[in-house]
Amino acid sequence: MTRVRFAQTPAEALGEVADGATVMIGGFGPAGQPAALVEALLAHDARDLVIISNNAGNGDDPLARLVRDGRVRKIVCSFPRQTDSWHFDDAYRAGRVELELVPQGNLAERIRAAGAGIGGFYTPTGFGTPLAAGKETRRIDGVDHVFELPLRADLALVRAHRADGVGNLVYRKTARNFGPIMAAAAARAVVQVDEVVPTGGLDPEAVVTPGIYVSAVVASASRERAPV
């Protein structure tokens, strides 16, 4: 209901974050990671965070530093292990961070379900594997399914390419990944964009995330630019 707010800085866009908050962070590795917003979260003092993100940080990127600095109580994630995920690896081995490992498609669909008001869904993914242990199952049309619950968040940090004046978003290539579903699944979606264009400056047919899902927008050029 609240109209989108345009912030001058990532910190102002981020606003207040409570200790113990559940925060979705978009991106598939570095592609689509809202680095400026995660930096702002690092600079904020919120602790005991539950992070929902496909990965658990690469190298010394801001998500990796959140984990390193002990700010994350739990991470819900499909692929934490990377060649350069040393901060997560150390924290996990030392028992300093809890991991809920979720198959990537289930992660996406659980997030989508939350944003769409769906109370859960049955899927064949994971049936008979350790990741479905203890979960309700049901045979549908001769195929075994596992029941999965929605995943919602207090806050989603998303990177998009452009926003217009009402918060409509378009993305760029595979950086779209989790952005649209996370924006819908969080009480508050804060979006980092490369550029804000005037209302009317995006083709309505091409809008990917309608402004209704967006709480705040900040323009930030804090990413590597593609070669021309």
Partner: peptide, 11 residues
């Protein structure tokens, strides 16, 4: 002690 990761394999 291995750090687990599954990605999209199960899906």
């Amino acid at each position: 002690g291995a750090v687990p990761a599954v990605g999209g394999a199960m899906d």
